[in-house]
Simulated scan of single mutants.
Amino acid sequence: MEEYLQVTEVIDWQHPEIIKCAQKIASGQKTPDAIAKACFEWVRDEICHSSDYQMNPITWRASDVLQHKTGYCFAKSHLLAALLRANQIPAGFCYQRLSIDDLGAPYTLHGFNAIYLPEIGWYRVDARGNKAGVNAHFNPPHKQLAYKIQLPEEADFPTIFAEPLRLVVEAMQAQTTWDDMLRNLPDISLDFAKNYGLWQ
């Protein structure tokens, strides 16, 4: 599990503000499950999804997401992982491929988390932020993510990564505003996903 607790440039959980926030969220919680739920709900509800709220800047490093209180789904998953790791709860990264308009092309990757819970193992959660038509919750062992796979070219990739996908991080680093990011969301074909280790 050590790789799912590591500090990286993106998941900089040893940043003083992340440690402070992680301790505050965990205060009064008795179990890893309770801490994980509190961290999930805090990121889901307190960090604004960049395109929902039309907020800048584009954040990708966990401490920057916390500072600016905004991020795309990927960035929110980076902060959630950092808060969990700061509480010594293993956390990884998961991805789906989704239609942007639910009608087909164009497609985009969508990022969320897997949390290792002592009683059930890996549990997937999606802190992108709820809105009309999106209702993600923490209710193990039942999985309630933000989106369901509906089209043939969509996919729910099973791999749990210890680090965010480099192509996702680079896509965020290349943009500065929420609308630029919306026009340049990262995507990979299902064939490429097989080569990338996402898909069997």
Score class of each variant (00 low, 15 high):
Ala36Leu: 02
His15Pro: 05
Thr59Asp: 07
Met55His: 10
Ile58Ser: 04
Val125Ser: 06
Lys24Asn: 09
Ala38Asp: 03
His68Tyr: 14
Thr8Cys: 10
Ile188Asn: 05
Gln88Leu: 12
Gly133Trp: 02
Ala26Ser: 11
Asn139Thr: 15
Gln144Thr: 06
Glu9His: 08
Leu151Lys: 12
Val168Ser: 09
Gly129Glu: 07
Ile11Arg: 00
Gln173Lys: 15
Ser63Glu: 01
Ala132Val: 12
Thr31Val: 07
Leu80Glu: 06
Leu5Asn: 08
Asp180Ile: 11
Gln173Glu: 14
Pro186Asp: 03
Ala132Cys: 10
Phe112Thr: 05
Asp101Trp: 01
Arg128Asn: 09
Gln54Gly: 07
Ile35Pro: 00
Gly71Tyr: 08
Val43Thr: 11
Trp13Asn: 03
Pro106Ser: 13
Ile100Met: 12
Ala26Val: 06
Pro106Ala: 12
Trp60Lys: 08
Arg183Lys: 15
Ser189Tyr: 02
Asp12Gln: 00
Glu41Gln: 13
Ala26Tyr: 04
Ala75Asn: 09
Asn56Asp: 15
Pro118Glu: 05
Leu185Arg: 12
Ile89His: 00
Ala34Thr: 05
Leu165Glu: 06
Cys21Asp: 02
His49Ser: 03
Leu145Val: 02
Asn195Ser: 14
Lys148His: 13
Phe192Val: 12
Asp102Trp: 11
Met55Cys: 13
Leu83His: 04
Trp199Gly: 01
Gly133Tyr: 03
Ser51Gln: 14
Arg61Gly: 01
Lys131Val: 11
Thr31Tyr: 02
Asn184Val: 08
Pro141Cys: 08
Lys194Pro: 00
Ile19His: 09
Tyr4Val: 07
Arg124Asp: 01
Asn135Arg: 11
Asp156Pro: 00
Leu109Cys: 07
Glu170Thr: 14
Glu17Gly: 10
Trp13Ser: 02
Ala26Ile: 04
Ala171Trp: 00
Asp64Tyr: 05
Cys94Asp: 01
Phe112Trp: 12
Val134Tyr: 03
Gly71Trp: 02
Leu79Glu: 10
Val169Glu: 07
Arg128Gln: 14
Ser50Asp: 11
Lys30Glu: 13
Lys20Gly: 12
Asp12Pro: 01
Gly28Lys: 11
Arg85Ala: 09
Ile19Val: 15
Tyr53Pro: 00
Glu154His: 04
Val169Ala: 07
Cys39Gly: 00
Gln67Cys: 02
Ser27Pro: 05
Cys94Glu: 02
Ile120Val: 13
Val7Lys: 13
His110Asp: 03
Cys39Leu: 02
Leu185His: 09
Asp179Thr: 10
Tyr116Pro: 03
Gly129Arg: 06
Glu46Phe: 10
Phe93Cys: 10
Ala114Ser: 13
Thr176Trp: 06
Asn87Leu: 11
Leu109Gly: 06
Glu46Tyr: 13
Leu103Ser: 13
Leu98Gln: 00
Arg128Pro: 08
Ile47Glu: 02
Trp13Asp: 02
Pro141Met: 09
Phe192Gln: 15
Ala127Phe: 04
Thr177Glu: 13
Pro141Trp: 08
Met1Cys: 11
Phe74Thr: 10
Glu46Cys: 12
Pro106Cys: 11
Pro186Thr: 06
Pro152Glu: 11
Asp12Ala: 02
Thr108Ala: 13
Met181Ser: 12
Phe157Gly: 04
Ile188Phe: 10
Met55Pro: 05
Ala127Met: 12
Ala91Trp: 01
Pro140Thr: 05
Lys20Asn: 13
Lys24Cys: 10
Gly121Ala: 09
